[in-house]
Computed example of a mutant assay.
Amino acid sequence: MAGRASGTESAPDDLVEVGRVVGPHGVRGWLKVQPYSTDAQALLRAPSWWFKTPDSGLDTGVSSLARAIGVRASRLHGGRFVVAQLEGIADRDAAEGLQGCTVWASRAAFPETGADEYYWVDLIGCDFYGESGGMPCFLGRVDEVLDNGAHAVLRVARGTLEGQGGFQPALDARGRAVHTFVPFVQAHVHRVDLAARRMDSDWPDDF
């Protein structure tokens, strides 16, 4: 895949964390990256990757990302990793300098999805509705998507809606967030409306 030269341009507003550098690959500066999704197309299609050091903290925002580096070539490796050659990273020592960094890509670089296909990052933050007595009811908000090997699983933070879409999380006796885990399969999740940030399912309210 052709890339762009490394740069110091401002970070775009639509950056998404898509993986982590696990180490160098070979002696010519290639990197080995662990994608966060089983579909690594977001990594493979992005012309530049942004790197954030592990000690910079995730709560500091994308403005703290170190820099963008153009991707000269990338490919799948071993079924679980992406290996890539980056602009200006010419030897193993330079590649080792990025080990442990998180990798970010612009959402605009993601390929279009097919019918009934979704990027996990787009599902996070959706309001999740189940059923109570045969009627739709708000259960909570999706805050993470997991992979159990067979299919994706939605982690739904339980809570209530208040005011203008405000979300009040439910807490247990120890003050910890309460979650429900729902298989992301058509048998349970019947409708996904990304524009409305809403998902409808048959998941029972008391589960």
Rank of each mutant, 00 (worst) to 15 (best):
D143H: 08
A84P: 02
C137H: 03
R72T: 00
G130P: 03
E162Q: 11
S63M: 05
G163E: 11
S64W: 02
E131M: 09
Y129Q: 03
D91P: 05
Y118H: 10
S106A: 09
P54Q: 01
F110H: 06
R92C: 03
E96M: 11
E117S: 06
V156L: 00
L58P: 10
D122L: 01
A109D: 08
R75G: 05
A68G: 13
S132D: 15
L76I: 04
V153G: 13
W104F: 02
I124R: 04
A150S: 12
S106Q: 08
L58H: 10
D59R: 05
S56R: 11
V153N: 13
A157G: 12
L65S: 07
A90I: 05
E162R: 15
E87H: 15
S64P: 00
A105P: 03
D127L: 04
L154Q: 09
S132I: 00
L123W: 02
G100Q: 09
V82C: 10
A66G: 05
W120D: 14
G57D: 01
S106K: 12
E96H: 08
V153C: 09
L146Y: 13
V82P: 09
D93V: 10
T160A: 15
G159D: 13
D143S: 14
A94G: 11
A73G: 09
I89S: 08
L154A: 15
P136A: 00
L146A: 11
D147K: 12
G88M: 10
G149V: 08
A105T: 07
T102Q: 07
I69F: 06
E162Y: 09
G114A: 06
D127F: 00
G159A: 10
A115T: 10
V82E: 13
L146M: 14
F128V: 02
G88F: 04
